[in-house]
Amino acid sequence: MYQTGSIISGSSALWLICGFPKEWSAGDLDVYCCNGQGHILVNFFQTQGYQVVNYRTEATEDESSSFFDNSGLSAATKLKRDNREVDILESPTKSAFTPLTCFHSSIVMNYITSSEIVVAYPTFTLRNIGIVQTGTPQRGNQWKEKYETQRAFSIWRHHPMDTSRVCPKRLRWIGDGQSLIVAFDEPAALAPDQNTSWRFNGTQYHQLCSPAVCTRVGFDRYAPRTWDEFIARTKLIVPCE
């Protein structure tokens, strides 16, 4: 991950952030990388005994498929070893973070680098709440059914602005001050990409909001700010050295 600037995201990162709940687990490991780096990750996993079972690109995908629609991806490789699956997901840009801005909801807008864990919407995610990004209808409503029914998340299509100082309509950047960033013992090795930004599609403005800024700045004190507090809140089990 350090060599390629890749990140782990999707349900695998969420499962860790939620403290490895027994009620559900991630179906596979999603590894995102910048454009042109996918083959390095594929080669690595092949040395670990994984075999490629599917490879597709946006350019060659069948027109009847919606996999790449609004996904922020240029290529996807699925590898498998026994009952374990890994998806290598390649960004169309030089940033592995680009696909995160296209995710279906705030629930999965989290990532793990080689040196830190980042939650883009800690106020909601740590309370099992997700805000829908209506402009990215990936996989129809299947994801919504999965997270509401199987994983006990509350899904909000319209954000009740008076419940939080964090507005989903606010212009955001990867690793900004609204994120919960928990670094490991070593300094962060993957610098935030300030060119990667997003603003949620389809959510309503509140009366203090404008297209460029939101006057309700700052994130909720509920969110832990240190590694030890994060472990305590999520009840993670960290092996003794």
Score class of each variant (00 low, 15 high):
73 L>R: 14
66 S>K: 09
92 P>Y: 08
46 Q>H: 05
73 L>C: 02
163 T>I: 13
150 Q>M: 12
52 V>T: 14
134 T>Y: 05
173 W>M: 14
152 A>G: 05
96 A>I: 08
202 G>D: 03
182 V>Y: 05
72 G>R: 15
98 T>F: 13
76 A>M: 13
218 G>E: 13
162 D>V: 10
144 K>F: 01
208 L>S: 02
132 V>C: 04
38 G>Q: 08
146 K>Q: 12
78 K>L: 15
46 Q>W: 01
229 E>T: 02
117 I>A: 02
20 F>K: 13
14 L>Y: 00
209 C>N: 06
16 L>Q: 03
69 D>V: 03
179 S>D: 07
41 L>D: 00
128 N>I: 06
122 P>T: 04
84 R>T: 10
4 T>S: 07
121 Y>N: 14
33 C>Q: 00
118 V>L: 12
55 Y>W: 07
144 K>M: 12
111 Y>S: 05
15 W>K: 07
156 W>C: 05
88 I>G: 00
234 T>A: 14
116 E>H: 13
3 Q>I: 06
132 V>E: 12
54 N>Q: 15
50 Y>F: 15
149 T>D: 14
87 D>M: 04
236 L>M: 06
129 I>E: 14
15 W>F: 01
90 E>A: 02
194 Q>H: 10
78 K>C: 06
114 S>E: 11
106 S>K: 11
217 V>Y: 15
230 F>Q: 07
132 V>M: 12
3 Q>M: 09
227 W>A: 10
234 T>Y: 00
81 R>N: 14
213 V>N: 09
208 L>A: 11
48 Q>D: 04
67 F>C: 03
70 N>M: 06
67 F>S: 09
208 L>Y: 08
218 G>C: 12
179 S>P: 07
100 L>F: 03
58 E>Y: 09
29 L>K: 01
189 A>R: 12
31 V>W: 01
65 S>W: 03
76 A>V: 15
147 Y>M: 14
12 S>A: 10
94 K>Y: 00
46 Q>S: 03
168 P>I: 02
87 D>Y: 07
32 Y>D: 00
126 L>P: 12
187 P>T: 14
199 R>Q: 15
164 S>M: 07
87 D>R: 05
197 S>C: 12
18 C>H: 01
4 T>V: 05
139 R>H: 04
135 G>K: 10
61 E>H: 11
82 D>F: 03
164 S>H: 05
20 F>W: 01
173 W>V: 12
127 R>I: 07
49 G>F: 07
81 R>F: 05
3 Q>Y: 00
239 P>E: 03
207 Q>E: 08
10 G>Y: 01
41 L>V: 02
216 R>L: 15
14 L>V: 03
128 N>D: 09
84 R>V: 13
177 G>A: 15
137 P>K: 11
51 Q>G: 10
153 F>N: 03
75 A>E: 10
